[in-house]
């Protein structure tokens, strides 16, 4: 993999109540060997973005415009069969939110993993088992878990199994949707360490979706902040978390609302109001209803992504001046 380019992608959900503009012109690129963090509140389109990248929107969703180019090939032009044979889990895998709770309770881990691998690759059972054990070792588990049932394993172990399963077909890009959210802090830190080690060992690229800016700071080389189906800001880890701070008012507020353990704060900031209804998104900047720095222009015109320094783009009219 050289590069994943996403251009102006639009994914709408066509519900009985109307059209939900879940992704409304999102563009970014993912380079080989980097981790791109996607952050935002619930309902901002983070998970939808993950499913869009694999071209498998959840019904009644449909990708209505845009391009997703993986090494130059627009995967939105491929048919289901080609997607399944060439892209999904072959080149791009996804670890869904709560996937660790979706292991079948009635099968052993061996049976579940075997089924996955044999349905994609023709190989002898012994060979498949050797491969399974290789990946289990890679994620820090012993072959001993193979004969266990999911209920005998802890949350951290199940999450490791789900990650190992996603890696079977040797993808180059792994999309992780909230992989640490339901776990305890110590286990969370262990899983984050594991993902970092895998990134180095297997030269993987990650898309790491989470609502937690603090977790993102530990894993992401670059951060994409989403708000109401649009990109608010993209910057490097240093640009977003560094002393100069984030540039978009939304990112700034999210950062101020993140409680810090090692610093005493008397008052946490919060963002008044709720994200807009994506059935009828507001005109102008989608954040203008909650923005403390709103100007007249923000209410009427939608801000473009403006490059304020190399690798740092912001969708905010304040930066046009």
């Amino acid at each position: 993999m050289e590069k994943l380019e996403v251009k102006k992608i639009k994914l709408y959900y066509f519900t009985s109540k109307g059209v939900i503009h879940a992704l409304d012109g999102v563009s970014f690129e993912l380079r080989a060997g980097e981790t791109l963090g996607v952050v935002g509140e619930s309902g901002c389109g983070k998970t939808t973005l993950g499913t869009a990248l694999l071209n498998m929107p959840t019904p009644p969703g449909r990708i209505v415009a845009g391009e997703i180019r993986l090494d130059g090939v627009d995967i939105l032009k491929l048919n289901e069969n080609e997607l399944r044979k060439q892209i999904r889990w072959e080149k791009m895998a996804m670890v869904f939110q709560g996937a660790m709770n979706c292991l079948t309770p009635v099968y052993t881990i061996r049976k579940q993993m075997m089924e996955t691998i044999l349905s994609h690759r023709k190989m002898a059972k012994e060979e498949a088992e050797a491969r399974i054990i290789k990946y289990l070792n890679l994620v820090g588990l012993s072959a001993d878990v193979l004969r266990r049932y999911p209920h005998e394993l802890s949350g951290g172990m199940k999450q490791r199994i789900v990650i190992a399963t996603a890696l079977f077909l040797e993808p180059q890009i792994v999309i992780c949707d909230e992989p640490t959210t339901a776990l305890d802090v110590v286990v969370q830190a262990q899983i984050i360490n594991l993902l970092k080690k895998l990134k180095q060992q297997l030269k993987l690229s990650f898309i790491f979706i989470t609502h937690d800016l603090a977790t993102e700071a530990e894993v992401a080389d670059r951060i994409l902040v989403m708000y109401a189906g649009k990109v608010a800001e993209i910057g490097t880890n240093e640009q977003i978390y560094g002393p100069r701070g984030a540039a978009h008012p939304y990112t700034q507020l999210l950062m101020a609302a993140t409680p810090r353990l090692r610093q005493k704060v008397d008052q946490l900031a919060f963002i008044p109001g709720t994200p807009p209804d994506l059935l009828a998104p507001p005109a102008g900047c989608r954040f203008h209803l909650r923005c403390p720095q709103v100007m007249a222009r923000c209410r009427q015109e939608e801000p473009p992504l403006i490059e304020i320094e190399p690798a740092h783009t912001v969708a905010c009219w304040r930066w046009k001046q």
């Binding site: 970092k196 603090a214 700071a217 530990e218 880890n237 240093e238 353990l261």
Partner: peptide, 21 residues
């Protein structure tokens, strides 16, 4: 183990003093 929103931790493998769960 608690993550902190500060820069420069991406390539750091965090030392976790306790094992297991």
């Amino acid at each position: 183990a608690v993550p902190e929103p500060v820069p420069g931790r991406v390539n750091l493998i965090k030392e976790i003093p306790i094992k297991g769960e």
